[in-house]
């Protein structure tokens, strides 16, 4: 059992207009076996949270903490975080020239496990995982993400998730740009990884569509860098019907509570 704990996280970025605060005090605790969905309108800071956990250099943590089983994640370099068990499935996976998928997957697996995987079982595992995600076998010979379609890139992210077996998976809008078939394939992959029972999942999404295939235990609504509402799966259903309009941007939770009260009256 592991715990990823985010406490009062404030994050800013440097822009040409000066420093801009994106996350304004986010707290969140995820445990092994749990699936948390983070939902919110564009620009609410969802992806910033994902990238900050992974350690992207663009984001500056100004205050707050992130710990993994008590260890200070913010003190770790990007690769150390991955080796500690954090995995970010990226919204826009980059193409890496010159590195074949085979070489990349084996190198990463070796780095994460601290030892090279046994060649025979590894090759078999990769093949099997690729088949389940409907990824053509010849992808292993191609360079990482090079020339892959948007859907193919997302499937390859989930392939890595299944092979690297992280303690916590952060899925940054993995569903965006996928057609229904691809969405199902990708969701099945996440569910398989989850079913092994050793992973917690932070699912970041703009749409509720993916939540038909991946069932969240908790839903957190992000607006303007803060969690404005939290609840169970039923909150997602409500968002599906009502959208984000009732969370007026810039408004605090108090406004929403008032709006809710008015709606019930």
């Amino acid at each position: 059992m592991s715990t990823l704990e985010i406490k009062d996280l404030h994050v800013s970025i440097d822009t040409e207009q000066g420093t801009k605060e994106i996350l304004k005090g986010v707290s969140l605790t995820i445990r092994t076996g749990e699936t948390h969905a983070i939902m919110g309108p564009n620009g609410s800071g969802k992806s910033t949270l994902a990238s900050t956990i992974a350690g992207h250099p663009r984001y500056n943590v100004t205050s707050g903490t992130i710990t993994l089983d008590g260890e200070d994640v913010l003190a770790m370099s990007v690769d150390e975080r991955a080796r500690a068990g954090l995995f970010l499935a990226m919204q826009y996976p980059v193409e890496v020239p010159g590195v074949s998928m085979t070489n990349f997957l084996r190198t990463a697996k070796t780095a994460i496990d601290g030892e090279a995987p046994k060649l025979r079982t590894w090759t078999k595992d990769v093949k099997a995982a690729m088949a389940q995600l409907r990824i053509d076998a010849d992808f292993t010979q191609r360079n990482v993400n090079e020339g892959f379609s948007g859907g193919e890139k997302k499937r390859v992210e989930i392939l890595q998730l299944e092979l690297f077996k992280p303690k916590f998976a952060i899925l940054d809008e993995t569903d965006s740009g996928l057609d229904v078939d691809a969405l199902k394939v990708v969701s099945e992959g996440v569910n398989r990884a989850h079913a092994e029972g050793n992973m917690g999942t932070l699912l970041i999404t703009h749409y509720t569509r993916i939540l038909r295939y991946i069932k969240p235990d908790f839903v957190h609504v992000f607006v303007d860098g803060q969690v404005v509402e939290e609840g169970g799966p039923e909150l997602a259903d409500r968002l599906e019907e009502e959208g984000y309009d009732r969370y007026a941007t810039g408004a605090g939770a108090a406004t929403i509570a008032a709006a809710d009260a008015a709606a019930q009256a």
Partner: peptide, 30 residues
Amino acid sequence: GRFDDQHLFYLMARGIPEEVARRLVVRGFL
């Protein structure tokens, strides 16, 4: 093309240390 911070971040986010990542890219390329 250029090997930039985005490539580096991607590889490091998969547990690969910076020096290994750089070598991986150039060695593969050449």
